[in-house]
Nucleic acid binder design. Sequence first.
DNA 1: ATGTATTTTCATTTAATACTGAAAATACGA
DNA 2: TCGTATTTTCAGTATTAAATGAAAATACAT
Lengths: 181, 181
Amino acid sequence: MEKTRTKEQLAEAAQLDVARDEFVTQWGTIGSAWGINRTMAQIHALLIVTPHALTTDEVMDELKISRGNAHTNLRELVGWGLVRSVVRKGERKEYFEAEKDVWKMFCIIVRERKRREIRPAINVLKDCIDRADGLKSPDALAFTKQTKALCEFMEMADGVLSKVVRSEQSTIIPWALKFLK
Amino acid sequence: MEKTRTKEQLAEAAQLDVARDEFVTQWGTIGSAWGINRTMAQIHALLIVTPHALTTDEVMDELKISRGNAHTNLRELVGWGLVRSVVRKGERKEYFEAEKDVWKMFCIIVRERKRREIRPAINVLKDCIDRADGLKSPDALAFTKQTKALCEFMEMADGVLSKVVRSEQSTIIPWALKFLK
DNA sequence: ATGTATTTTCATTTAATACTGAAAATACGA
DNA sequence: TCGTATTTTCAGTATTAAATGAAAATACAT
């Protein structure tokens, strides 16, 4: 009886491992499609579905990747704020754990992408608008009109995202769902 | 007098060309940061700030790229729906022009990314949830809880984006700006 | 049908990105 | 201080993605 239970438990554990592996692998693929480094996405996925914090060596082992690779991508994830490094008292090794709250994850990603992608784009647009400033030809006016429209749109989007993310609480999206037609 | 005017006009035209080039080049860089092929972003930028439709040869010439490259990326842009091919009566060459309305551009991009990136991610998550379905261990329950939270969030985001983009009019974002605190 | 303009494909090359593994640097306990 | 555990760096290598250019296919006028 005891033996049977153990067998079942082993089978269940194996099934869970398969599900986890599937998630990690597929999340890596999805990450690639999103323009994110495959390994970084996999490490993130691994940490998301692992209940406890992991060391660099454990990550290396799970994903069969080199130390350098694991290290670089863990640092990158920490840089994004999606992963925290934790130190256990009396232990020398560094452990890593992911932010698991989905809404917080979303806020972090939006804030970072705003900073890294939207802001620079707005700056480029402003620069182009300035360069063409004062020109009077029809082509120049068309250019200015187009770049200004783009710039205003991005500033608007930036503003909306700031507000969505400011509250740090997940009630806005369900709220929006109701109000939008 | 006539001569002076022409000189000024030439200088203005040159200045506009610089602004255009700057826009095209920088947009390519930004595109890369967004995970979009640099050349595709540059062609898109070029078509956005060119008042008239261009042929493949003109694009090749402007951006100093090969025919194959221009062709492939133009087709890709047409595939996204961001660029239309137009045929002029009596002419054999194919011309390309970009959708210039910023809100329409936004809607097209959101719809495509929903289809290409969000939907597949949701499917992966559902698949993982199914695999772990019925497992009773604490680890399994944690896994299920986490993947379900992710899945629900993405479905919610998908729903909000659908509604934002459904109306095909640019009034929603300014509206949202007012209502969000 | 033949010739020509135009588009499409694709084997090859080139460039960009990611990964490895080992050495160097750092942190820390004895 | 010395020795060891751990982290960090980075030159070299591998992998993947993008671009070239020329040949093949297609479309169309005569």
